[in-house]
Design a protein around this nucleic acid. Sequence first.
DNA 1: CCCTGATTCGC
DNA 2: GCGAATCAGG
Length: 190
Amino acid sequence: MSWTDERVEILKKMWGEGQSASVIAKELGGVTRNAVIGKVHRLGLSNRSGGGSKAPAKEKAAPKTAAKAKTPPKKATPKKEAEPASKPAADIKPIPARKQIIPAGQPLPPQPSANEISPEALASVREVEKGAKKLNLMELTERTCKWPIGDPATEDFWFCGLTVQQGKPYCEAHVGVAFQPMSSRRDRKR
DNA sequence: CCCTGATTCGC
DNA sequence: GCGAATCAGG
């Protein structure tokens, strides 16, 4: 991919909106966040200033003087990550025949007592579950949502598997229902 | 650990 | 000009 005019437009727009480089990169597709950051700098809008026109212009000393003076690339962690780099996208979920969906009354490991989920949270949860990866116990990793769905006693059981929210063990939606601020507990009719 | 932007430098 | 590798801070 190259930086076509419109792609740069999107970049400027999103960067201006304060979107992170990774998000912009994902949006544009075909580029990594590094590419985005690099471009942002070349465009001179590293600072989120729009009409400032005042460029602090902080020049760094040019270390390259000697013939071959390479900065010792210290590799503290030579781990090579096999990142998917760029992949089209996996949207469009046919969604087979899924009847029973979270009975909301038993599959809630956390918060054992009282689990009346707010309508909004429950709505988003169901939304998420439509795109859940349905991972089994073996497929869970530190960054997959560990929210159980279905009945552990049957085959209709799997884990959400979506990307977790930093730190938490669940994805955003599930974090929402798992960590209900005890205040929002109101007796819902059932 | 993950994420963020910043910088360097070979291509 | 481009962007991976790397650095540095949260």
